[in-house]
Design a protein around this nucleic acid. Sequence first.
RNA 1: GCGCCUGUAGCUCAGCAGGAUAGAGCAACUGCCUUCUAAGCAGUAGGUUGGGGGUUCGAGUCCCUCCAGGCGUACCA
Length: 591
Amino acid sequence: METLHTHHRVHTTRRTIGISNRFSHEPAAPFFSINFTHKYATLKRSEDMIEDILLKALREIGIETDFVEVEIPKHEALGDISTPTAMLLAKKLRKNPSVIADSIIAAIKEPDIFDSIEKAGAGFINFRLKPSYLHSKLKQLYTEGEGYLRPNAGKGRKIQIEFVSANPTGPLHLGHGRGAALGAAVANLLSAAGFSVEKEFYINDAGRQVKLLGESVFCRYKERTNTPCDFPKDGYHGDYVDELAGEIHKDNGDKFSNARFDEVSEFFIDYAYKAMLSEIKKDLSDFGVEFDTWQSEKELFTNGTVIEAIKRLRDKGLIYDQDSAVWFKATAFGDEKDRVLIKSDGQYTYFASDIAYHVLKLNRGFDELINIWGADHHGYIPRIRAVIKAAGGDESKLLVLLVQMVMLQRGGVPVQMSKRAGEFVTLRDVTNEVGKDITRFIFLTRRPDSQLEFDMETVKKESSENPVYYIQYAYARINSVFEKARERQIPVTFDGTTDLCGLSTPEELLLIKKLIFYPTTFLNAVRTREPHRITFYLQELAGLFHPFYYKHRILDEEESLTRARLMLCACVKIVIAEGLNILGVSTPDKM
RNA sequence: GCGCCUGUAGCUCAGCAGGAUAGAGCAACUGCCUUCUAAGCAGUAGGUUGGGGGUUCGAGUCCCUCCAGGCGUACCA
């Protein structure tokens, strides 16, 4: 799994060029040659080509290495592409980085794509690309489309991503929405990168919570038949509980009024959680999030998966009985204490079914399992890892993405949310009030592991100037230009022969560079499983488009310039659509 | 007590794999609609990156420590 190997590249660099490093206490590993061949085989970013050119130049001056660092400078004034190679070599060669930079520059043989190659700062080499090269890459983007924008990093490897998995005991709240937005975006991202992605929702339809829900509904039902009932201590108080009781009463009359809960529990529990589950499905669907598979926890009990999983562990001597409970030796695999699977009252803990669930997932042949959890479950990670190790699985296949809390506020005042007490603002309430696109966008404009303040008043106030509109507006504007072009009979399709020489102003060149480097951002987002990088890229892209649009006419220029600018706009539109689709945000033709 | 996450502009947040002058939106202030959508553009102002050490040619980024906030430390789910 590439995520876990990211640091090896750095090590490789240092080892290869012989710099003594502070990683030397690590296992004296064989030379890592990971990722390089893979990378050159599959990715075709402009930076890769520069790397090749640099490697060749280095060989020319007698330095053998298999990796050089190349980056896009923060400031445009510093060039289009840059490398700190000379500085990294300075120590090894005992030479001034500036001198090394000079010899590297002298050894570079391919001047035809560069406008300039300059030495700068402490030993950077900065490359400025020729407009003609930029034009050719833009054409490539347009003609290849997804082939250009979606370098195949996944190669069909199977990833399962499990997210939301909310207890079916009430409507989704805003925190679930954050998990849903993230999970869907990660799934879109990875699937665009050539992974085979399955989205799964794990249904906690067994155990205490659904039972409490059923019992709560049962009590409300009894109240409707004027029969006394002790409401369960930790029962659910939301209005929806009473509504479910009303439905049951309407369909069944007073039929159950004299029953004890344990006599009718199955009916009430099933009725209640299934109703809530379908609400959840609808909430998710309206939020634009669809799942491929829904795994029932109850089924893991009824079809023997849980018992089988425990038996397997017992056969390995990893299960023991103590104090009338059944324990798993989690400490043998790095957890801080052993964990109970079956309580002394005979009830299974959730951990028991979670063991079965994760073993099942491993056995289903995924190359990677991603779990998106609320950060309040982080303490659970070591024991799940322990399970995977105990089951003989590859622990590195599990990636847990923690989503921090959403702190809902209204005008700076925290809104308390308690599902059991029935006091909460649902995801649906929020999207009704502020809109789906804005809600999703806000979730994807933050790193998942930072707490998110979601103030209804602020969000509504800022809605009219929300960054999501900034991006969508760029898209709509382009669409509108194309409408006008069609009205004026200007052809709006392009190919490799379209003349782009006219694209020469600073605004145009900046836009082109931003566009052709999209795959870099995309691959970084894929590698880190962080869709918010796409969000920020899109804001930057729109931030280059609007000034271009304001400053230059598109349709009123002479024909070839109009055509060139239209093609540039077409590319902006393609990339915005690509990004917004990954984020799950709509692309309105008109605004 | 121990563990995990967070601390960057007045507010909400980025900072791409250790690179060069730390960015954006909102809020504030100045300008721009007889021209393809002003949900836009141009500009001003705003910072000891929580504090202190360390590693490095180079630290917002890595290490140590302290401070602050959140979460977790069950035969709970």
